[in-house]
Simulated scan of single mutants.
Amino acid sequence: MTTLVGVDAARGRRAARAGWWSRWAGLAFVAPFLVLYLWLMIYPLVSGVIMSFQYKDLLSGTSEFVGFWNYEDLSIDPIFIGSIFNTLRFVILTVPAFVVLGLLIALALNRPTRGAAIMRTLFFGPHVLSVTVVTLIWKTVYLPNVGMIDAGSTALGLGPLSILLNPDWALAAVALVTVWWSIGLPMMLFLAALQQVPQDIYEAARLDSASPLRILWTITIPSISKMIVLVAVIEVVLQFQVFGQVNLLTGGGPNNTTRSMVMFIYQAGFQQWQAGYAAAASQILFAIMLVAAGLQFWVSRKPAES
């Protein structure tokens, strides 16, 4: 009996050591990711929040706790308030276009033909270009007097339009560039979702003499509704961070009508050297992005749950 008890105790100790080792071995495997995540994500996020409550001058190195002073100053800064509305307008101009046009292009090119493959490549091609290359291409289109648009309008007797210099059209022109540049990603995501829909459902609908529009509304869109939500949320987050094309095409003009929130943060932090002020603006941008993405997700999910 004593021998059996000793054997059981030894087995229990070995099992405990094996369980301890398996737990620490698992932690060792995820430790590199955790370290990088804490270093590159959590630490900058916490540092930015702390910095937003400070007066921090990067040029002189001055740092002083000022509480909510940065946020109070931003609330009455007309340029910052204008950048919020400009960014919201830009999101409204681009996100529906990404969802609708991306889905329409995906529907048109969702077929196993060589022509469709070539067209998918052409639509996705601009997405791999840098923002500098894209803006250089479109500057030749938008240049006053000698650009493609102004040359065409002059030939038609309308005179030069100078779109990028027009406060009413400049932001829409930047939105057009953005959609042309990035429509490839929504298209590919929708194509991936469409190819997961079982074909026998479509065959059954055609046997019942369902029209293409009815098939679209009753089969296709419900089947890829999760991807529609995902694309909308991704584009909301991305377009709230618009900076490169605005900076290179218009510089925030004319009359601050295209100045985005990220451009305001960049100028406050790296041109005026007011890091605390820029950090406070970035926290407001983060909060707006969080609310907008959450609201989009909630609105899109609510009909399906009811």
Rank of each mutant, 00 (worst) to 15 (best):
Ala9Lys: 13
Arg17Lys: 08
Ala18Arg: 13
Gly19Gln: 04
Trp24Gln: 07
Leu27Phe: 08
Leu27Arg: 03
Tyr37His: 09
Met41Gly: 04
Ser47Tyr: 14
Ile50Cys: 15
Met51Ala: 15
Tyr55Ser: 14
Leu59His: 07
Ser60Asp: 00
Gly61Asn: 02
Phe65Glu: 14
Asn70Leu: 02
Tyr71Gln: 02
Ile76Gln: 14
Ile81Thr: 05
Ser83Ile: 01
Ile84Val: 15
Leu93Phe: 15
Ala97Trp: 12
Ala97Leu: 12
Phe98Asp: 14
Phe98Leu: 07
Gly102Trp: 10
Ile105Tyr: 06
Ile105Val: 11
Ala106Asp: 10
Leu109Gly: 04
Asn110Ser: 08
Arg114Ser: 12
Gly115Gln: 07
Thr121Phe: 12
Leu122Phe: 08
Gly125Trp: 13
Gly125Ser: 13
Ser130Pro: 13
Val131Leu: 09
Leu136Val: 05
Thr140Asn: 14
Pro144Leu: 10
Asn145Glu: 13
Asn145His: 12
Gly147Glu: 04
Asp150Gln: 09
Gly152Lys: 11
Pro160Tyr: 02
Leu164Asn: 00
Asp168Trp: 15
Trp169Gln: 06
Leu171Arg: 14
Thr178Phe: 12
Ser182Val: 07
Ala192Asp: 07
Gln196Ser: 12
Leu207Tyr: 06
Ala210Cys: 13
Ala210Tyr: 08
Ile215Cys: 07
Thr218Pro: 03
Ile219Thr: 09
Ser223Arg: 08
Ser223Phe: 09
Ile228Arg: 10
Ile228Glu: 05
Val229Ala: 14
Val231Pro: 12
Leu238Ala: 10
Phe240Val: 01
Val242Cys: 02
Gly244Glu: 09
Asn247Val: 05
Leu249Thr: 00
Pro254Lys: 04
Asn256His: 09
Arg259Asn: 09
Val262Gly: 00
Gln267Ala: 06
Ala268Pro: 01
Gln272Trp: 11
Gln272Cys: 02
Gln272Gly: 01
Trp273Leu: 04
Ala275His: 03
Gly276Ile: 03
Ala278Asp: 01
Ala281Gly: 01
Gln283Tyr: 08
Ala287Lys: 00
Val291Pro: 00
Ala292Glu: 10
Gly294Cys: 01
Leu295Ser: 14
Phe297Thr: 06
Arg301Ile: 05
Lys302Gly: 00
Ala304Gln: 11
Ala304Met: 05
Glu305Thr: 01
